[in-house]
Amino acid sequence: MSLVVRTLADRIFDLVREKVVSGQLAEDQPIRQDALAAEFGVSKIPLREALARLEQENLLVSHANRGYFVRAMSADEAEEIYALRLAVEPAAVGLAALAATDEERAAAIAAMQALDEAATSQAELVAMRNREFHVALTRPCRRALTMQLIERLQIMSERYTVAHLAPAGRGDRAHDEHNGLLQAWLSRNAARAQELAAAHITGTLNDLRQQLNLL
């Protein structure tokens, strides 16, 4: 049995990341560290540690004598993130469909249910639940380096997920695509699950290309 110890900086990291993903922190304004520290009831030391980690995750950028800013989303970054996802994620989904244990299959079903619940009543959690669903479909592939990359890319995708789901009707389409993907995965139809995962990622990227070029 392993014990996972979360530090104060870990918790602050999650709170600030949620603010970035949800758009509560604007891209064109410096992050007010005094205000955030007061809001969270912490000193600036764990906050600064969390901000530095978020810069490593490419969610923030620091400027000398100006502090931290939210990294702007861009069509070029979306292209790179989703191209990398396409290179590794569909194959991992296919491998995982064949290798998943009963416990892992139950976890994937639960992740889908949690995503649906968030879409219905907790919109601020949709990006996180979406990430957890995709990770649940790939983790059973049993490839540690692949999973490190997928999880990193999923974190970087979260803001783009929020942007992608903003237009009306996108949520329903995403639900249908996720459900079809899950059913193929649960049926251990690796080829079909891989195909649907690639189509889902490609469709999202095509939508983002249009959205981000219009912003």
Rank of each mutant, 00 (worst) to 15 (best):
Met1Arg: 09
Leu3Met: 11
Leu3Ala: 09
Val5Tyr: 05
Arg6Asn: 12
Leu8Trp: 08
Leu8Lys: 14
Ala9Leu: 02
Ala9Lys: 11
Phe13Gly: 05
Phe13Ser: 06
Asp14Met: 06
Arg17Gln: 12
Arg17Thr: 05
Arg17Leu: 14
Val20Phe: 08
Ala26Val: 06
Asp28Leu: 08
Pro30Phe: 03
Ile31Arg: 06
Asp34Gly: 05
Asp34Ile: 11
Ala35Glu: 14
Ala35Met: 11
Ala37Ser: 15
Ala38Phe: 09
Ala38Asp: 13
Gly41His: 10
Gly41Glu: 11
Val42Ile: 12
Ile45Val: 15
Pro46Thr: 04
Arg48Glu: 12
Glu49Pro: 03
Glu49Ala: 15
Leu51Val: 07
Arg53Cys: 09
Leu54Lys: 05
Leu59Met: 14
Leu60Phe: 08
His63Pro: 00
Ala64Ser: 13
Arg66Glu: 14
Arg66Asp: 09
Gly67Ile: 05
Gly67Thr: 09
Phe69Lys: 12
Val70Asp: 03
Ala72Leu: 08
Met73Gln: 13
Met73Val: 09
Met73Ser: 12
Ala78His: 06
Ala78Leu: 04
Ala87Trp: 02
Val88Ile: 15
Pro90Ala: 08
Gly94Val: 06
Leu95Trp: 06
Leu95Pro: 01
Ala96Asp: 01
Ala99Pro: 02
Thr101Arg: 12
Asp102His: 13
Asp102Gln: 15
Glu104Cys: 01
Arg105Pro: 08
Ala106Ile: 00
Ala107Ser: 14
Ala108Ser: 15
Ile109Phe: 01
Ile109Pro: 02
Ala110Leu: 13
Met112Val: 00
Met112Tyr: 13
Ala114Glu: 12
Ala118Thr: 02
Ala118Arg: 03
Thr120His: 11
Thr120Trp: 05
Leu125Asp: 15
Leu125Ile: 01
Leu125Thr: 07
Ala127Val: 06
Leu137Arg: 02
Arg139Cys: 01
Arg139Asp: 06
Pro140Tyr: 00
Arg142Ile: 00
Ala144Arg: 11
Arg152Ser: 10
Ile155Asn: 13
Ser157His: 05
Glu158Gly: 02
Glu158Tyr: 00
Arg159His: 03
Ala168Pro: 10
Arg170Met: 12
Arg170Ala: 14
Glu177Phe: 05
Glu177Cys: 07
Gly180Ser: 03
Leu182Arg: 11
Ala184Ser: 11
Leu186His: 03
Arg188Ala: 13
Ala199Gly: 06
Ile201Cys: 04
Ile201His: 03
Ile201Val: 13
Thr202Glu: 14
Asn206Val: 02
Leu208Trp: 05
Arg209Gly: 02
Leu214Met: 09
Leu215Glu: 13
Leu215Lys: 09
